[in-house]
């Protein structure tokens, strides 16, 4: 039967093998150093350049050394709270993050649902896609006056701005993901008669997951961009208003510290969504 079994067994090999020299173990620290050293070097160079450029008598912006002196409290203790708006950066960032979390969560739920709808129904696609394509080009802040008029309160207005900013890439990417579910998977589903909600849940959602997470990643980035601008206008606790407030009291050093924090938090948000995406879509890439 089996082609191999009809052959006579080969005589056991008695050839002595030369002893292989142990290979040197690859170092684990060297690659880490190679990763960490270049950005540190560039950072140091940029700092030095900045210090040099901002130290002249006509400089309009403070050099790093002055930022350190001016904003020492802010840098060293992000957790202080002296009541009112006089809080550490942590509290401002937390307030902004809460708004983003709420607005983004809403837009994720609504966006994925709408994306699924227009991705799977040609009628909805034709009806809604042109409207979405126009609305998505409206800048986030342009929604703020309208939402202030509608909600008559700062907090829900800011959340609405986040929602409306983040939702477009989520809708569009989800729809593209649904449209791109390979015909092979649809055939498999057809043969085992997987239909309706089960088909959506077991085939469409996992197959579209990489696209959905691309949309979410773009969405969270835009939310963070929008919240800073929105908070400058609505006031209250939040990193956006903190920056605006510092500008009004000419605390340029505070602004620089806040910008660094804003950048770091935005970077972190991006990484968190990317990580969630990697966990949720493991295995779906490449087959």
């Amino acid at each position: 039967m089996n082609a191999v079994s009809t052959k006579p067994a080969a005589a056991p090999a008695v050839v002595s093998r030369p002893v292989l020299a142990a290979l040197p173990k690859p170092s684990r620290i060297v690659p880490i150093i190679a990763q960490v050293v270049p950005p540190l070097m560039v950072l140091a160079l940029l700092g030095l350049g900045w210090e040099y450029l901002a130290s002249g008598p006509n400089a309009t912006l403070p050099p790093p050394s002055k930022v350190w002196v001016d904003a020492r409290d802010l840098i060293v203790d992000p957790f202080f709270d002296r009541g009112g708006l006089d809080k550490g950066l942590f509290w401002h960032l937390l307030a902004s993050l809460q708004r983003v979390a709420l607005g983004f969560a809403l837009s994720a739920v609504v966006g994925v649902a709408l994306g699924m709808l227009i991705g799977s129904s040609p009628f909805c696609m034709r009806g809604l896609d042109p409207i979405f394509q126009v609305l998505r080009t409206v800048p986030p802040l342009a929604w703020l006056p309208l939402s202030l008029a509608a909600f008559r309160e700062a907090q829900p207005s800011a959340i609405f701005v986040i929602f409306i900013t983040a939702i477009w890439p989520i809708i569009i990417n989800t729809a593209v993901g649904v449209l791109n579910v390979p015909q092979d998977y649809r055939n498999v589903a057809a043969v085992i008669r997987l239909r309706g909600l089960a088909f959506f849940w077991k085939i469409v959602l996992p197959a579209a997951a990489p696209y959905i997470f691309t949309g979410l990643k773009i969405g969270i980035g835009l939310s963070w961009l929008a919240i800073i601008a929105a908070e400058m206008l609505i006031g209250g606790v939040g990193i956006g208003f903190f920056i605006w407030d510092a500008w009004n009291s000419s605390n340029l050093s505070d602004i620089i510290v806040a910008l660094i924090y804003v950048g770091l938090v935005g970077f972190m948000l991006d990484k968190v969504v990317a990580l969630a995406g990697r966990i949720a879509t493991r295995g779906t890439q490449a087959s």
Binding site: D184, N187, A190, K202
Partner: peptide, 28 residues
């Protein structure tokens, strides 16, 4: 229309990549 009484083995295998081998068979 398609149905499990005429099961197909596709040329490009068409396994669902997010499921394990066991789960692929189990789903069917």
């Amino acid at each position: 229309g398609p149905g499990p009484d005429r099961a197909v083995v596709f040329q490009n295998h068409s396994l669902l990549p997010w499921l394990t081998c066991y789960e692929n068979v189990k789903l069917a």
